[in-house]
């Protein structure tokens, strides 16, 4: 449902792959190989060429804002622009807050006082509130403790199981690949190729 063919940008050339419904694909590779650049290009945040389509619809035929709602990028560090959590959510009635161990008053919390685990879980919820069709996760658990890591992994799995969304997950951890990946893609100086996740 998500097709990328011959995607090129500064630092990357001729990247082709596709993701199926509900599929969770990990992306690994040495630092500097361009994993973040690839994710940024897929979310159309930097100039790039090539064909990228979602459910057969080419991205240039839809507004950039619609594309990024459906092909959502979550970086390793979340950014916040207002004082309280609630100001970052368009629809404050997200049902998932209690399921993630947040009190009902979480929307009134000050962003300054969130722990890094809370920040990242809330950043993921903020992305999921848009109901994306494709999740691009750029080392989403890099700065988290084991409890928060399993919380994020569970949240992504739950979302995918009921939405059928696909997920491209950048990680350096072999353990995480074994836990979450259906397939493993590796990006290195040879380009993009598939390896066994086991």
């Amino acid at each position: 449902m998500f097709q990328v063919s011959k995607l090129s940008r500064q630092g990357l050339s001729g990247i082709s792959f596709s993701l199926e419904d509900s599929e969770r694909v990990c992306l690994s590779g040495p630092s500097g190989s361009g994993k973040t650049l690839l994710l940024r290009a897929l979310a159309d945040l930097d100039p790039n060429t090539g064909r990228v389509a979602l459910d057969g619809v080419e991205r240039n035929t839809m507004p950039a804002t619609d594309w990024r709602r459906q092909v959502a990028l979550l970086p390793a560090d979340s950014r916040w622009w207002a004082a309280t959590v609630g100001e970052h959510f368009e629809d404050a009635r997200s049902p998932q807050f209690p399921a993630l161990g947040f009190e009902p008053d979480v929307l009134g919390w000050e962003v300054e006082r969130l722990s890094s685990g809370e920040r990242q879980r809330l950043a993921l919820l903020r992305v999921l509130a848009n109901q994306p069709r494709v999740l691009l996760l750029d080392e989403p658990t890099a700065n988290l403790d084991p409890d928060n890591i399993s919380c994020v992994e569970r949240l992504v799995a739950d979302y995918q199981s009921h939405s059928k969304a696909a997920c491209l997950w950048v990680t350096h951890s072999r353990d995480q690949v074994r836990r979450v990946a259906d397939r493993l893609l590796v990006l290195d100086d040879q380009g993009l190729h598939e390896e066994s996740p086991a």
Binding site: A43, T65, D66, R69, A72, L73, W80, W81, N130
Partner: peptide, 13 residues
């Protein structure tokens, strides 16, 4: 720039 792009990533104009 990171805050601006964080909003763009969420589909903001």
């Amino acid at each position: 720039r990171e805050v601006i792009e964080a909003r763009l990533m969420l589909g903001h104009s």
